[in-house]
Simulated scan of single mutants.
Amino acid sequence: MNEIPQPPLRQQTLYELIGGEKTFRRLVHRFYQGVADDPELRAMYPEEDLGPAEERLTLFLMQYWGGPRTYSDERGHPRLRMRHAPFAVNRAAHDAWLRHMRAAVDGLGLEPDHERQLWDYLVYAAASMVNTPG
C-alpha cells in the first residue's frame, strides 16, 4: 500500500510563538512610554507625536520576526543604518534605548528562550545603530 506523502510541518515563527501583533504592539508601546520622558532619546524624534515612530517600529519588528510584511510594503527595505544616519547615536543613546527596551521586554513575561532570542537581536540592533563616538 502506498502511503500518501505529507507536506513538511511548518515551524512557527517567533512572531506567532509570542502572541503575534498584540505582543509586539505591547512591547513597542511600553518602549515609547519610556522614550517620551527620556531627554537623551526624545530629541531624536522630530515628530511632536511619537505615534508614527511607534507604528514604524512595531511594523518593522513584526515583519522581522515573521509577521506581516506591512513595513516593507509601506516603506521599502528597512535600511536601518541609513534611516538613522541623520541622528547622532552615541553610546549614551544606545544605553538609554536598551534600558527602555529592557523594561518593555521584561513587561511581556515571555518564555526564557523566546525572551533571549528577542533580546539578543535588540542588543545587536542597538549596537549597529551607533554612529557617533562618545
Rank of each mutant, 00 (worst) to 15 (best):
I18P: 10
G20R: 05
E21K: 05
E21V: 03
T23M: 09
T23N: 07
T23P: 00
T23G: 04
F24R: 05
R25C: 07
R25A: 05
R25L: 07
L27D: 02
L27G: 11
L27V: 12
V28K: 02
V28R: 07
H29Q: 07
R30M: 06
F31K: 03
Y32T: 08
Y32A: 05
Y32E: 00
Q33S: 04
Q33P: 00
G34R: 10
V35S: 04
A36Y: 01
A36Q: 02
A36P: 02
A36K: 12
D37I: 12
E40N: 12
L41G: 00
L41K: 08
R42E: 10
R42C: 08
R42T: 04
M44K: 10
Y45F: 15
Y45A: 11
P46W: 14
P46H: 13
P46M: 14
E47I: 03
D49H: 00
D49K: 14
D49Y: 11
L50P: 07
L50Q: 11
G51H: 01
G51L: 14
P52N: 03
E54L: 15
E55K: 14
E55T: 15
R56V: 00
R56T: 03
R56F: 08
L57V: 15
T58P: 03
T58L: 09
F60T: 15
F60N: 02
L61M: 11
M62D: 02
M62G: 08
Q63F: 07
Q63K: 10
Y64R: 02
Y64I: 01
Y64E: 04
Y64P: 02
W65I: 08
G66W: 01
P68I: 00
P68V: 00
P68D: 13
R69W: 02
T70P: 04
T70S: 04
T70R: 14
T70Q: 13
Y71R: 09
Y71V: 01
D73F: 12
G76M: 04
P78E: 03
P78Y: 12
R79C: 06
R79Q: 03
L80A: 15
L80W: 08
R81D: 05
R81N: 07
M82I: 06
R83H: 12
R83V: 11
H84R: 10
H84D: 04
A85H: 09
P86W: 02
F87G: 04
A88H: 14
A88G: 10
V89I: 15
N90H: 15
R91G: 09
R91P: 03
A92N: 11
H94G: 05
D95N: 15
D95E: 13
A96Q: 13
L98Y: 11
R99N: 02
H100D: 05
R102T: 08
R102S: 09
A103P: 00
A103T: 13
A104D: 02
A104N: 06
A104H: 02
V105E: 01
V105T: 13
V105R: 01
V105D: 00
D106M: 08
D106C: 04
G107N: 01
L108Q: 09
